[in-house]
């Protein structure tokens, strides 16, 4: 019983690490632009499909595929930013969000037109047996993912508070007009933030699909929903919050799936979000970090 609980928590942390990575990318965009990019997940899916296509047609070196996945989602992200966010920078948040939803539809159709099968195999990160710690087992991929999530969170934090770009970013977030007057090229900063988030998304996508060793068209919606959920649970706009929110969501899901089944898992995750939103504890309303 205790062992089950611990094993579930391990599995949950492994899943949670991927949610955390997705939430970090989401948070970066939301924290600076105050806009929700519904196409975040579909752009990641686009990158992952590009990598899958390369692995079938040419070569399946994992680092090559990682590069393709990142490149693909950055390209898709640029397209999204130019079409949905740059034009609405000063305008309506709803219009930007609906536009990003429209592009989601495009990504989904492009991907299923080029690769129509419902499921594609994706090469695994490495052929390692799960690590055995006594009676418990832990997948090595999970450790890689967790390490990546923490490293990226740390690096972003350093960038925000220790670099010139980070300073510009915070200036744009806090006072866009003043930042503009101080000579910061605001549209350029916003585009760069978007590309950075897309690159992180590409990495997250690659980690996720090479852990699950398969790609399906559901990846887009799944990434957007899980990323949003983890971001909201962790408190909007805080990077460490996004990581904690992702991990918490993963652990909660693992336990509820074990005890109550897959439908209850999703029900409980949404219930948690709903209750948190209605109740709004302090850490959900204070942002930045």
């Amino acid at each position: 019983m205790i062992l089950d609980l611990i094993q579930n928590s391990f599995d949950g942390l492994a899943m949670g690490a991927s949610y955390a990575l997705l939430a970090v990318g989401f948070t970066l965009v939301f924290g600076v632009l105050r806009r929700v990019n519904l196409s975040y997940g579909p752009a990641i899916m686009f990158g992952c499909y590009a990598a899958t296509w390369v692995s079938f047609s040419f070569h399946s070196n994992i680092f090559l595929l990682l590069g393709i996945a990142v490149l693909g989602s950055v390209l898709a992200g640029t397209y999204v930013e130019r079409l949905c966010f740059a034009p609405h920078h000063k305008g309506s948040a709803i219009a930007a969000m609906v536009a990003s939803f429209a592009l989601w539809m495009q990504f989904e159709e492009v991907v299923t037109l080029v690769m129509p099968k419902h499921l594609y195999d994706f090469p695994p990160m490495f052929d390692a047996e799960p690590l055995a710690i006594g009676p418990l087992s832990l997948r090595a991929e999970a450790l890689v993912m967790l390490a990546c999530a923490l490293a990226i969170c740390f690096a972003l934090h350093r960038m925000l508070y220790r670099s010139r770009f980070g300073l510009a970013l915070r200036a744009v977030t806090d006072a866009p007009v003043a930042a503009q007057l101080a000579g910061i090229n605001v549209p350029r900063v916003l585009l760069l933030v978007f590309l950075l988030a897309s690159a992180i998304g590409g990495l997250a996508g690659w980690l996720i699909v090479s852990t699950h060793t398969q790609v399906t068209p559901m990846l887009g919606m799944w990434s957007t929903l899980k990323g949003l959920l983890a971001m909201m649970i962790g408190g909007l706009g805080s990077l460490p919050g996004a990581v904690i929110g992702g991990l918490a969501l993963g652990v909660l899901e693992a336990h509820s799936q074990w005890f109550l089944g897959p439908q209850a898992r999703d029900l409980i995750a949404y219930l948690l979000l709903f209750v948190l939103l209605a109740w709004r504890p302090r850490w959900m309303t204070t942002s930045h970090g």
Binding site: L83, H88, S92, V98, A99, A102, L103, M105, Q106, E109
Partner: peptide
């Protein structure tokens, strides 16, 4: 046929640039 969402999605995104409401 088969390209409906590509056409519609692009149309919507472009339309919203010029007419956000």
């Amino acid at each position: 046929h088969g390209y409906r969402m590509i056409v519609f999605g692009g149309l919507v995104a472009v339309l919203l640039i010029f007419r956000p409401r």
